[in-house]
Computed example of a mutant assay.
Amino acid sequence: MPEPSITLRPYRATDEDAAIELWQRTWQLAYPAIDFAARVPWWRERWRAELVPAAQIVVAEEDGTLAGFVTIDASGYLDQLVVGPSHWGSPIGRLLVDEAKRLSPDGITLLVNSDNARAIGFYHKHGFVDAGDDVNPVSGRPVKRMRWTP
């Protein structure tokens, strides 16, 4: 069986529906008790109004299908790193975090839900350290602030 082909490229407006669908599917699996389908209109507005204009967005495609994305703004804040559930454990997460580090070589900060042990472990594995506890300003959920410095 041939090895899948993973490509990183800049986000295009035509990626919006696939990126939003991937966000919803991924977060729904991570937090099944929350109705992420009901949050899609809010997320689409946030995506269009906050992330697309202010962040660099890089998508990962596997064999031409969107499999993940990362958003990073000029301050080095990583708002989203989403990898489709069928790609968890694949190189896609590492490739996206490495790309974020390339785009923000002076450092990266992010917030991760305190109960998301999988994500926290992923960031630790990729050189991020805990930088204190916080509260997500949007959801009100407890989060860990994490930081990567070169």
Rank of each mutant, 00 (worst) to 15 (best):
L22K: 11
Q80M: 13
R141K: 06
I34S: 12
A38I: 05
L66G: 11
R141F: 03
A13P: 00
T71G: 08
F128S: 06
T7D: 05
V135M: 14
K125V: 00
F69K: 05
R12T: 07
P10H: 14
S114G: 14
P2A: 14
L111H: 12
P41I: 03
E3W: 00
L110R: 14
P85A: 10
E99L: 09
A74T: 12
W88S: 08
P32L: 09
D115W: 01
S75Y: 00
L110T: 15
F69A: 07
I120D: 11
W88N: 06
G132N: 07
F36M: 02
T7P: 00
P85W: 07
I20R: 06
W43F: 13
V135I: 15
E62V: 15
W23R: 03
P4A: 07
A67G: 11
G132R: 08
L51P: 05
P105K: 00
D133Q: 13
D115N: 05
P137N: 07
G84C: 06
W27H: 08
T149V: 12
V59E: 10
L103P: 03
P85E: 09
A74W: 04
V52L: 05
R12P: 00
A38Q: 13
H126I: 05
I120G: 10
A117D: 15
A49S: 13
E62A: 14
P32Y: 09
R141Q: 06
E62M: 11
T65M: 05
R39W: 01
T26N: 11
V97G: 00
S104T: 02
A18M: 00
L22G: 10
R46A: 14
D106L: 04
F36P: 03
A37G: 07
R48A: 12
Y31I: 09
L78A: 08
E50G: 11
S114Y: 09
V143T: 13
F69W: 12
R46D: 06
E3P: 03
Y77M: 01
K101H: 03
K101G: 01
T71D: 12
A19M: 07
E16S: 15
I57N: 07
A55Q: 14
H87D: 02
W148I: 05
P53Q: 02
P32T: 07
A119W: 01
Q80D: 15
D79V: 04
P32R: 10
S86I: 03
